Simulated assay, not measured.
Amino acid sequence: MVTVNESLPALRWGIIGTGLISSWFTSDITAPRKSPKANHIIQAIGSSSLEKGKSFVSQHLPTLSPSPTVYPNYQAVYDDPNVDIIYIGTPHALHKQQCLDAIAAGKHVLCEKAFTLNASEARDVLAAAAAKNVFVMEAMWTRFHPLVATLHKVLHEEKAIGDVHRVYCDFGLDIDLASLPSTSRLRDPAMGAGSLLDIGIYALTWGLLTLDPGSAEDKPDIVAAQTLRDGFDIASSFIITYPSTGRQGILTSTMQSRTPETFLRIEGTAGYILVEGPAASLPRSFSVCPKIKLGSPPEEGRKYEFEVEGKGFYFEADAAAESISQGRKENEIMPLAETVRVMEILDEIRRQGGATFPQEEAV
Rank of each mutant, 00 (worst) to 15 (best):
F286T: 02
R187I: 00
L20P: 00
A160K: 15
C99W: 03
R143W: 08
P72Q: 08
A44E: 12
A355L: 06
I201S: 01
K37Y: 11
G271N: 02
L117W: 15
D80K: 07
P358H: 02
E305G: 09
Y314M: 05
A38H: 05
R328T: 03
M191T: 04
T227W: 04
F25M: 15
G53D: 10
A317L: 09
G249F: 02
C111G: 12
R328L: 09
T183I: 09
A321E: 07
P91L: 05
V164S: 08
Q326D: 09
A38V: 06
D233S: 14
A76V: 10
D170A: 04
D230Q: 09
R302G: 02
E138L: 00
P32E: 03
D79V: 02
A216H: 10
V83D: 06
P32H: 02
S325K: 13
A193H: 05
C169S: 14
K303V: 13
S23V: 02
L336T: 14
D163Y: 10
R302L: 06
P181W: 03
Q98P: 13
E276C: 15
I86M: 03
N133W: 05
A139R: 07
A319K: 10
T18P: 11
T241G: 07
F135W: 08
S184C: 03
V2M: 01
F232K: 06
F286K: 00
T254C: 01
G277E: 01
P220D: 00
I234E: 01
H60A: 02
V83E: 13
A31M: 14
S22H: 12
P36Q: 15
I16R: 14
L209A: 12
V340W: 02
S47C: 13
E348M: 08
A38M: 13
I349M: 03
G295T: 07
P335W: 06
T90M: 14
